[in-house]
Design a protein around this nucleic acid. Structure first.
Lengths: 354, 354
DNA sequence: CTGTTAGCGCATTCAC
DNA sequence: GTGAATGCGCTAACAG
């Protein structure tokens, strides 16, 4: 029961007094490196701490130690399965290191992102992970770069996910190669006329995937017409709207549409169905990411698998493992890209035999 | 460029010296309440801070002020859309208050939850939000309750989401009434034979929804047979497995299956389809939560809408708004439950006319 | 308004 | 091993 007795939390000082030992001893018993304190005192301190409901003040520890136990994570949208899966990975790995994760959402707004980086930097997090989307028009020497550099100079470690236009640690996701492989696979299935549903210009990820898809088609001797590239927001509704626009304009022979991520692809599926057509049969659909739900839509979605949770884990590891302060990896020693894999499902049954 | 020059972050002290003012003045110029410092000094301090890339140390501020700017959020599984939507709401609302959210995942393990609460308490968060699932066998005077009580006694505010078996602030989600309304609606559609896919015993939310569904059926003069209640994990795969078991056992006339949450329902849809049946037509399906994806599955899922993001926002507001330290609301003044709404979609077309 | 000073809670030197 | 003292970065009285 929480009665009205509002008191301040017990401090280490209180514990020391209660146990009849010095502050230093209490500190050592509760945290100090490996056992250096008499077993008797030790148990007395622990008992006192339990009795007083003592909980070490992490802020105070951080100040005294000059180092926090925090990891900052920036994503574009927490409710988006792409980001929440990455976040789950980061949190899981952080937990192993007894690190606490703080999370913020940029909503894909570069200014917000900058503000958040600034604010989060105040935490002096051990690591800062940026999973939020990078933009093509983003200068590598702008204020964000400045901020990140300052953070690193002060001993922080930043990890980018996906692209490494900055000279910073990066979990490389080869969007371009993945999309190319998808295009190759679809061409192998016999498709010849393609359309792409992508995000508005400016988003690196979307741009790379489109470019990669073009690469793959070109390798198969297929050209992607600019008029067959439609754009929408990088969301389910954006995919729905763009696909609807494509349909209204008239397919003109397009057999399959590639949406640059799965949430847009799912929107595409619904748009096709709402237009009275049958996804897969009348118009095939492929996505990218392999988020959990694409197995359960109808037809199950062909996509490019990206190990989202692992990416999150890897991002944290990357920052923690080279604690030798050797600085960010140079492009030459850049880590291998995370492996992606084309997964063909029923949404691309092969072109209709007529 | 981050060159090798690794330095410690600039401190307020540095800024003060650089600006040629006292520590106090620098502090006031950068944070101190409304303008009390000479405009000239003010700009000088700001300039110095910018020049030095100064970023206030939040930990130090927290220690000095005796109050943090942190909100701790506990969820069962970050990648689950139910929780990530709530989290998105919490983060969005926290952002308005310039509060930082720290997140942890209990993985539905009560022991983990306790550990996490203990660990998070060290942050001295202003608010602690528990969205992780409560269990029926959970004592209201166990160690978790103790821990939460201690936290509140020390001035913290905890908010529970869903159930209020504890005497703590709660965002009430009337799972029971929602499920009852769903049962009523389905009965109104003409269904007479029901099955339920639920989680293993012990989860409050699952239990309440099952009970409510029973209530609703009973009101319609329909009995739910115990043999028509199948259990699985509280996940998509759990729903899939349980439904598969139900199908293998034989439907025996069951017309519609209610899965106690949408992720399980989505699994049910796939299980039905994989068994060679047509969801909706051969076996209707209903879920609970109205997560984003259920509009895009086939057939679109009948469910009970729960304003997940709003719940997250409301949880934070609840904790912040009664900063008058009046303590947790008594049951009598408990806040209204969040409104839920039955949403009938194509997955429950009404019983087959044979 | 500004500067000086005393803490905040804790880790960690340094003597004992 | 243990305790006393110093300092981490910052805020908040407290005097000027």
């Amino acid at each position: 029961m929480t009665d009205g007795t509002r008191s301040t939390p017990a401090t280490l000082h209180d514990v020391a007094r209660e146990a009849g030992v010095s502050l230093a001893t209490a500190s050592r018993a509760l945290n100090g490196s490996t056992r250096k304190v008499n077993e008797e005192y030790r148990t007395r301190v622990l008992a006192a701490a339990a009795r007083l409901d003592y909980s070490p003040n992490l802020s105070a520890q951080a100040v005294a130690r000059g180092a926090s136990t925090t990891v900052a994570l920036l994503v574009a949208d927490i409710a988006d399965p792409y980001f929440s899966s990455i976040a789950a990975g980061v949190v899981a790995e952080a937990d192993l290191e007894r690190l606490i994760v703080t999370m913020a959402a940029t909503e894909r707004d570069p200014e917000r992102e900058l503000e958040l980086v600034r604010a989060l930097r105040g935490q002096r997090p051990r690591v800062m992970i940026l999973a939020s989307s990078r933009r093509t028009d983003e200068p590598t020497d702008g204020p964000l770069a400045e901020e990140l550099a300052a953070y690193e100079r002060a001993g922080g470690r930043v990890v980018l996910i996906s692209r490494n236009e900055y000279a910073l640690r990066t979990v490389l996701l080869d969007n371009r190669a993945g999309a190319a492989a998808l295009a190759t696979a679809l061409a192998g299935l016999g498709y010849r006329r393609f359309a792409v549903v992508t995000a508005g210009e400016g988003l690196r990820t979307a741009g790379d995937r489109l470019a990669g898809f073009r690469d793959g088609l070109a390798a198969a001797g297929i050209e992607l017409r600019d008029t067959d590239v439609v754009r929408g927001e990088f969301t389910r509704d954006g995919g729905y709207a763009a696909t609807t626009a494509l349909l209204e304009r008239g397919l003109n022979g397009v057999e399959v549409v590639f949406a640059v991520n799965d949430v847009m692809a799912v929107g595409a599926l619904s748009a096709i169905r709402d237009a009275g057509l049958e996804p897969g049969a009348d118009l095939a659909v492929a996505g990218f990411d392999d988020i959990a739900t694409v197995r359960d839509v109808t037809p199950p979605l062909t996509t490019v698998r990206v190990p989202l949770e692992q990416i999150g884990r890897r991002a944290l590891r990357l920052a923690l493992d080279d604690a030798d302060a050797s600085g960010p990896a140079s492009p030459a020693t850049a880590p291998d890209a995370v492996p992606t894999e084309v997964v063909i499902r029923a949404s691309t049954p092969g072109p209709r035999t007529r």
